[in-house]
Design a binder for these strands. Structure first.
Length: 563
RNA sequence: GCGCCUGUAGCUCAGCUGGAUAGAGCAACGGACUUCUAAUCCGUAGGUCGCAGGUUCGAAUCCUGCCAGGCGUACCA
């Protein structure tokens, strides 16, 4: 609807220039906005104010001229005439448009026709985008923080896909390097303890109970003789076994959280294929890497980092940064126009150096973006939930999904901007009332399904799903027009969400739509004695149902038929 | 010290590519089920948009400087 209004303004301005009532044909940046206050119309533009300088006329004078031009336009264009009820000038020079009720009715038809595609956009122009998220080390189960990252990454991927991007979701497995060796050692030591050896468990090893369980499993599988074997070999075996097992658990936990990946990418494969070495050689030949104090340094400082960073330590081992460089090179080689990494906020110090490596290989800084997800504060009944990472006790993602459910958890994670820290209250997420936003929105879907089922039972409609609106001109109450207006903005919200990479925009939108629907539901009956009006209202609520479903799908939340 | 994020109602937060009287939920108080699901709705009350300057016809929104909180500042991952 907004772009229709914009077109009318542009046409009018053009006409004004041709007629000589406006001295300039230049069109400045202007806004078409939806005023908060209904007395300011359905749409409003600041055209007159921002044109004052160009036209060398006072804003209100321009506005007056424009109103006349738009009225003239209405006389020649039937579409414009049927769209606009009246145009007013207000305040310092706002031009306010009041639309006719009929102008809104086609929106319902569009929703029913487009169904699951309603709200989709071609804004991404099929551009190839990769979203990499979670990528937790396979050294332990996923915890709450990973959950938020998973929800955000998955959702951003969905939203970008819906907005016309060609999206691939990827998980990077850190299956190489020190922490995997530490994992192996941890399991090995627990295993030795199990078999009766007195060993002090080091502080820098993983302490969770899952390590002990893994040790038991290996012991059972390999038999008692295993502890007598070569230690180095045994640790390597432990590491491999544990990492594989843990990764399997991670996959399961993510899957029950509704998150699936298009690709799981192994860090080790970058070493095996020689890509890490190739990246180092490549940068060295371009003098981007130099040797100092026995280590190899990448000149990230030349790209705005605070200091240069080590890629190969003086003991000959590569740092994670080295494989990260190779990994990001590999991503672009796969043809992605844009690469998005979702990281926990505690990693923000890494942005500059990865960005440096991206720019150093000739990509634009805008082709790489990091979504920094702020930390989660876990609460229970309003009280902070202390987690002792040192003792290896923490609340896992699985615990949360088991306790509050996938939908509630995901909705909660996506309810706020990831720029802000998030309080996640387990008690609150479990409540099945208005304290818990997920039910508020899902309830709309269930309620509407109930209405449609009843209408079908009473033979008012043949099927609870149809793709053409009926008697839409009978939708005339303020609540109905208001609902349609909200439905109309869905696509704009999807686009904004895709552009800013902020899923909570969809959350906020769904809450607004749900609130408008519940209000309507309590004020008006859908099924009434008036059959024609009933059909009109059924069309409208079916539209609401579809938009709720589409929106929830973007967040990875189910839309239940019944609750 | 430096970097990133945050500061809006008692609480949790939207709004931040500048617009006309700053919103929602929770909590508080008062109402609405003989009805298509009350997991809902309606009403009342509640704000120096951290502080101070600046840009602008117009600033919660942009700029600068402070103040406060979180996180980070390794040849760790």
């Amino acid at each position: 609807m907004k772009h229709k209004i914009r077109k009318i303004v542009l046409d009018a301005a053009q006409k004004g220039f041709e007629n000589g009532v406006l001295p300039s044909s230049q069109i400045p940046e202007m806004e078409i906005e939806e005023p908060r206050i209904s007395s300011h119309g359905d749409f409003s533009t600041n055209f007159a104010m921002v044109s004052a300088g160009i036209q060398k006329m006072p804003p209100r004078k321009i506005a007056q001229t424009m109103v006349q031009l738009i009225e003239t336009l209405g006389k020649t264009s039937e579409e414009t005439a049927s769209l606009i009820e009246k145009v007013e000038i207000a305040g310092p020079g706002f031009i306010n448009f009041f639309l006719s009720k009929e102008a809104w009715h086609p929106v319902v038809d569009r929703i029913l026709e487009q169904d699951k595609k309603y709200g989709a956009s071609d804004m991404g122009k099929n551009e190839k985008v990769q979203v990499e998220f979670v990528s937790a080390n396979p050294t332990g189960p996923l915890h709450v923080g990973h959950g938020r990252g998973a929800a955000v990454g998955d959702s951003v991927g969905n939203i970008l896909g819906f907005a016309g991007f060609d999206v691939q979701k990827e998980y990077y497995i850190n299956d190489s390097g020190r922490q995997i060796r530490t994992l192996g050692t941890s399991v090995w030591l627990r295993l030795l303890q199990k078999s009766g050896k007195e060993i002090e468990f080091p502080d820098d090893c993983y302490k969770g109970d899952y390590i002990k369980e893994l040790a038991c499993e290996i012991l059972e599988k390999e038999g008692k003789g295993f502890v007598q074997g070569d230690e180095k070999e045994a640790i390597a075996l432990c590491a491999k076994f544990a990492a594989k097992k843990i990764l399997k658990g991670i996959k399961e936990d993510l899957s029950s959280f509704g998150v699936t990946f298009d690709q799981w990418f192994s860090e080790q494969s970058l070493y095996d294929s020689g890509r890490v070495q190739k990246a180092i050689d490549d940068f060295t030949s371009k003098d981007l890497i130099y040797k100092e104090d026995g280590a190899l340094w990448f000149r990230t400082q030349d790209f705005g980092d605070e200091k240069n960073r080590v890629v190969v330590r003086n003991n000959g081992l590569t740092t994670y940064f080295a494989s990260d460089i190779a990994y990001h090179m590999e991503k672009y080689d796969r043809g992605f126009d844009k690469v998005i990494d979702v990281w926990g906020a505690d990693h923000h110090g890494y942005i500059k150096r990865i960005d440096a490596s991206v720019v150093a290989q000739g990509k634009k800084s805008s082709q790489f973006e990091v979504i920094l997800v702020q930390l989660v504060n876990l609460l229970r009944g309003g009280k902070p939930f202390q987690m002792s990472t040192r003792a290896g006790e923490f609340v896992t993602l699985k615990d949360i999904v088991d306790e509050v459910g996938k939908d509630a958890a995901r909705f909660m994670f996506l309810s706020r901007s990831y720029d802000s820290g998030l309080d996640f209250d387990l008690e609150l997420a479990k409540q099945k009332n208005s304290n818990n936003p997920v039910y508020y929105v899902q309830y709309v879907h269930a309620r509407i399904t109930g209405i449609l089922l009843k209408a079908k039972q009473e033979n008012i409609i043949q099927s609870i799903d149809f793709n053409k609106g009926k008697n839409l001109n009978l939708l005339t109450t303020v609540e109905e027009i208001n609902l349609i207006k909200i439905l109309d903005t869905f696509k704009a919200n999807v686009e904004k969400s895709a552009q800013t990479l902020h899923p909570h925009i969809i959350f906020t939108y769904l809450m607004t739509l749900a609130s408008a629907f519940h209000g309507y539901y309590n004020k008006h009956k859908v099924i009434t004695e008036n059959r024609r009006q009933t059909l009109a209202r059924l069309s409208l609520v079916l539209g609401v149902k579809k938009v709720i479903r589409n929106g929830l799908a973007l967040l990875g939340v189910n839309a239940p038929e019944r609750m």
